[in-house]
């Protein structure tokens, strides 16, 4: 970590924007640069030397870009294995940073697809001798990177009552909530997921929404931190992202829209509570999708009206077809699933 890293990271710190009386949006230009940089420091401590080629695996395209930014800053050769398909704009930016991107096949239901993914990884690793391997999404440095953010929230806002964020790898929400709870154990953590994502017990299906949810359970997702879980559709998240822009001029990605939808609902419902929502990136990468009406209509993702409130469900499997939520109650995953399917 050099003074240059510090300067770069400082410039990526979020702006805390008061969007309602009791709702503050933590608007990041590009949040994933923080866990990427932090994990790289951890990898250095773990014994990686700069002469060794790095192979990083991640479930998030944005995390891949963050890693490419930091590695390119130092001239470290980087190969990134991405679990999910990156959009064209993101691919251009990644390759502009001299990173080699390899995209894994989507995990299917059968064991065949899992095997293909493992084979793919083995193939890449065999090609690059003497490399250092790290899974960024599952590294403890992913949630561990958010101490600075918790500190910033405390510095600027003091105690908060609700932390709302979209969940993918579990890094930002679990990390930030974990640090804040050391001081404010009563703070409520609300996760936003999407249908077809297995994170909070939905059956696995192809997801329309990117940047939220996952096809596999990530190691950094600590279910016992969550008080409440929401599921939103891709169309709802897109509509919310556009509404967020109209109401606050914050031009963000769809993950931000989903988080804001839930947070603004909670802020309305609990007018005395101080709510913070995490907006992980700006809208630059999503101009051709979220901000393109033709695309939305063509893909059947156009929504005329946003629902006012979510539907409450008792179990993850009951959620849907639109925005739904359940009280998670800081339970472990297995406990919730056991309640849903008692023997």
């Amino acid at each position: 970590m050099t003074a240059q890293d510090v300067t770069v990271l400082d410039s990526y710190k979020p702006k805390l924007v008061k969007v309602e009386d009791n709702l503050t949006a933590a608007a990041f230009r590009f949040m994933k640069i923080f866990p990427a940089a932090f994990c790289l420091r951890r990898v250095q401590e773990e014994g990686w030397t700069e002469t060794q080629p790095l192979i990083m695996q991640t479930s998030s395209c944005n995390m891949a870009l963050g890693a490419a930014m930091i590695c390119n800053l130092h001239g470290f050769p980087l190969t990134i294995i991405s679990d999910s398909v990156c959009g064209d704009l993101l691919r251009i930016r990644l390759e502009g940073l001299n990173a080699t991107l390899i995209t894994l096949a989507e995990p299917g239901v059968g064991s065949e697809c899992q095997k293909t993914r493992i084979d793919q990884i083995e193939e890449v690793r065999a090609r690059i001798p003497n490399h250092w391997w790290v899974n960024l999404s599952d590294h403890p440095g992913n949630p561990g990177a958010y101490g600075f953010f918790a500190a910033q929230l405390i510095e600027e806002l003091g105690q908060i009552d609700y932390l709302v964020g979209a969940v993918g790898s579990g890094g930002s929400v679990c990390g930030t909530a974990g640090f804040l709870r050391e001081l404010f154990p009563e703070m409520l953590a609300v996760g936003v997921d999407t249908f077809g994502s297995v994170l909070f017990g939905q059956p696995r299906q192809t997801r329309r929404l990117r940047g939220i949810g996952s096809a596999v359970l990530p190691q950094n997702l600590d279910h016992s931190l969550f008080d409440e879980v929401h599921w939103v559709t891709a169309a709802e998240a897109y509509k919310a992202t556009r509404r967020l822009y109209q109401k606050t001029f914050l031009f963000c990605g769809e993950t931000s829209g989903a988080a804001w939808l839930v947070a603004s609902y909670l802020a309305r419902k609990n007018s005395k509570a101080r709510v913070v929502c995490i907006l992980p990136d700006d809208g630059e990468l999503y101009r051709g999708t979220v901000y393109n009406d033709q695309y939305l209509r063509r893909e059947n993702l156009w929504l005329a009206h946003l629902p006012e409130a979510p539907r409450e469900v008792a179990f993850p499997a009951d959620a849907g077809p639109g925005w739904s939520f359940m009280h998670w109650g800081r339970r472990e995953y297995a406990e919730v699933i056991r309640c849903e399917n008692p023997l």
């Binding site: 401590e45 403890p140 561990g144 101490g147 918790a150 500190a151 405390i154 510095e155 640090f179 001081l183």
Partner: peptide
């Protein structure tokens, strides 16, 4: 641990706020 170092960073900011406010 490095995780505890990060906690101390958060705690020191909270400490400053507690004293100033």
């Amino acid at each position: 641990s490095w995780r505890q170092h990060q906690s101390f960073c958060t705690l020191s900011v909270a400490l400053r706020r507690a004293i100033w406010e």
